[in-house]
Amino acid sequence: MRWPAAFFVGWIILGIDVGVATSLSPGQRALPSFALPFLVFIALHAPTIAVMWTAFLLGLFIDLTSPRAESAAVVVGPHLLGFMAAAYFVLTVRGVMLRRRIVALIVLSIPAAMLAGLVSVFVLTIRSMYPGGLGVEYSPLGELWRMVLSSLLTGFSAAFVGFVMLPLHGIFHFHDSSRRMVGMRR
């Protein structure tokens, strides 16, 4: 995978995720994610280690830029671990998917977002058990419900990301394992 291209596109996607998600959010309860469909797109095509590092970095930046209570510390980990779990899920199932289809991106983004959200809620719930861990009252059930809605909205953002990313597939210079298997190197 060509990392500079991934960094650049990832930077833009993070900008959209941070800046635009709130504008598109209905009632500010559920937020669509643009970073996760991008991660799914990477995970559908890139080598495993590259995918996991992409998940690590995307999650890290989202954790660091997430809003937090004024007196609380930044919690590094919820999105990072969630994205890594989602990436691993896509890596597991990508062999049976038609990777160059927007539908595949949409279909995988929704459960991947749910898995990422589930891990994130779990981590934050653990963290909220610490005195002053989050600085705010945390409701796991409410967050789970919000996570489900966000996952469904992520399906729409996945369509947008897929519509933009699939034509740009070439700039990432993904290593196509399926072609290598039958000896069709480009």
Partner: peptide
């Protein structure tokens, strides 16, 4: 991240 997020926010 914010330099790219602000224009996107204004755009949308």
């Amino acid at each position: 991240v914010y330099p790219i997020s602000a224009p996107m926010h204004h755009l949308l």
